[in-house]
């Protein structure tokens, strides 16, 4: 039997996405704001408290003035779950990249995307996007799910935190302790560069690229979505990062990380990939359900 398909128009998806970007460019995800308030309450270092105050106050002012939380308005990263009973008018990437271009203009966001990653150093490759190109490149992860809905997890991902990511192919006989050390060292050695306090995404398993995708995806999850299995490990890693005392903006205090979030996937018996992806305190994440 053939089920009826639900048509989601390009215009509707664009409208929802532009509206969502309009929320997050000037405001962080509410749970992250709560975690920052908790961090401030637990922090005893004067300098760290001074910075945390500013970080918290900035969100209220940014929201009110409709100014970006941060001048790096980021790269739009989307995890999309598309119901099998949905019909789209055009490819989802086209819709999202057009919506991004409109949102960036509308909210006076910084265009931070270099079309050529080598910035035009090779004579054959130009680092310019044509003026007429009504699209802004994004990163899209698309998965199919049952049902007739479209769920979009959006993030504005800044470069400073992204640059401090790491991936290591461990020996499958590696002890959990080695993995913990790798994650802790990655965050601590990043110092102030990713704008701590950070949220730490960890992907364990899958293959080379899936571990990285899991690490990024973990940044979008709440604890219910991650299950209970790794909860103690998450807490342990968090405690050990903060004990090392790099602190707020890498300058002072004990709040280097706000949360550690682990996602896992089955992997080949010869492999044990582990990836770490950081998000700064700006944490501009939102879910759109259509």
């Amino acid at each position: 039997m053939k089920t009826a398909q639900r048509l989601l128009s390009d215009a509707l998806i664009q409208e929802k996405v532009i509206e969502a970007i309009g929320k997050i460019f000037c405001d962080r995800e509410p749970h992250a704001q709560e975690l920052l308030t908790k961090a401030l309450n637990s922090e005893t270092d004067e300098l760290a408290r001074d910075i945390l105050d500013d970080i918290i106050d900035n969100a209220a002012l940014a929201r009110e003035e409709r100014l970006p939380l941060c001048q790096d308005t980021g790269l739009l990263v989307v995890f999309a779950r598309l119901g099998v009973d949905v019909r789209l008018e055009i490819c989802l990437r086209d819709t999202l990249e057009q919506a991004a271009a409109i949102a960036w203009q509308k909210y006076y966001m910084r265009d931070s995307i270099a079309p050529d990653p080598l910035r035009g150093q090779l004579d054959e490759c130009e680092d310019i996007r044509s003026e007429s190109d009504a699209r802004l490149p994004i990163v899209l992860h698309l998965e199919q799910v049952p049902g007739d809905g479209l769920s979009l997890d959006l993030a504005l991902k800044g470069g400073g935190a992204e640059n401090m990511s790491a991936l290591r192919m461990f020996n499958p006989s590696a002890k959990v302790e080695e993995i913990v050390e790798f994650v802790v060292d990655t965050v601590v050695n990043a110092g102030g560069r990713p704008c701590p306090p950070v949220i730490v995404g960890v992907g364990i398993g899958g293959d080379f690229e899936l571990s990285a995708i899991l690490a990024k995806r973990a940044l979008f999850t709440d604890s219910d979505e991650r299950g209970t299995c790794y909860r103690e490990l998450e807490k342990d890693i968090l405690r050990r990062i903060n004990e090392r005392g790099r602190g707020v903006m890498g300058l002072a205090g004990r709040n280097t990380a706000l949360e550690v979030r682990i996602l896992t996937a089955p992997c080949h018996i010869a492999s044990l990939p582990v990836a770490v992806n950081l998000d700064c305190h700006a944490h501009r994440h939102i879910r759109v359900e259509i």
Binding site: N58, L61, E65, P68, L69, C70, M249, L251
Partner: peptide, 13 residues
């Protein structure tokens, strides 16, 4: 000197 990242609205004032 280190300035705090991600407090653009405050800094722009």
């Amino acid at each position: 000197l280190v300035a705090t990242g991600g407090i653009s609205a405050l800094l722009s004032r």
